[in-house]
Amino acid sequence: MKCYIRNMSAISPQPTFATDSFLTDVVETVVDANCLKAVEPDYKECIKEAGLRRRMSHVIKMGVASALNCVEGAQGAMPDAIITATGLGCLADTEKFLQSIVENDEKLLNPTSFIQSTFNTIGGQIALILKRQCYNFTYVHRGFSFESAVLDAMMQLEEGDASNVLVGGIDEVTDTEYRVMERMGFWRSGAKMGEGAQFFMLSSTVSSQDVAQISGLCTFLADTSDYSQKVQSFLASCGMTLADVDLVLSGECGDAKMDASLLSWKASIPANMPTATFKHLCGEYQTASSFGVWCAANILKNQMVPSALRPVGKSDNVRRILVFNSYRNKNCSLFLLEKVE
């Protein structure tokens, strides 16, 4: 199974939206050292209908704007399937409705935040705006959410029911979540929370302007003891070995405990294997791997590894990138991306 990235779009804590530059103006200073908030575009430009836009919460706006931007630049491709992924969904709306239950003692509640709290709100809004009655799914499984969405899309493309599939990973940070994570000591050794919305138009056929090719992915729980074996068999299923990979792009969050499985694997690979990391730029969240895939595709397209991704080892002529993501030392995923030849 493989597919082509026709176009992609990212709203992230970095200036990644609607720009040709690739992580050249990285935002080093953030309001709070433990939390990376998205650099938001002018939503008036992206979501034209004012009434609709006003009702949308932060995460819905991020998701919808990123999705519409992705479709707009997709060389005329319209999605035959819309698949969204989110770890916590419309968290602010969920909290708002909970708060109103408490404050109003369960009486005379405004349903808007309840309606918008459902996990499939963004997917539904995209369908509504694009007027697409096609297949519409929302995955909500922690660090497997975006992975499930891409797997589903690749199966759709192979089944032939769809030629173009819109796939996105979206999550937001809220103050409550921030406080909860702080109490859990989530970032004690330097991890940051983050948010973002990355969308991809995946296609079954190649086109000259494609950004990159996704050649495979797999997921596994971090309790697996032999990560090298996992990586090896994954690459073998793509007809490769680690020697065929030109760059490893990994998603450690900065907390050694949470990164244990990923770091133990990285310690086992040849010392001359070029590596880079991405999570210090987007922060940690359930669907952060979508930012990793966005970075990998951009590296393949631009044929350069920006210094912001902290590259180690020389990597010119990057044809294949292995993205290794881990979420809370539990959900691990591997993506193989290749340059479109």
């Binding site: 969904g89 459902t118 996990f119 499939n120 997917g123 519409n136 799914f137 929302t138 995955y139 909500v140 499984h141 497997f144 959410s145 499930s148 997921t219 729980l221």
Partner: peptide, 17 residues
């Protein structure tokens, strides 16, 4: 159960999906 895990949430149509 140690194979592929995933979770879907599409409101009241979730488990059919």
């Amino acid at each position: 159960i140690n194979g592929f895990l995933s979770t879907i949430s599409t409101a009241c149509s979730s488990s059919a999906n």
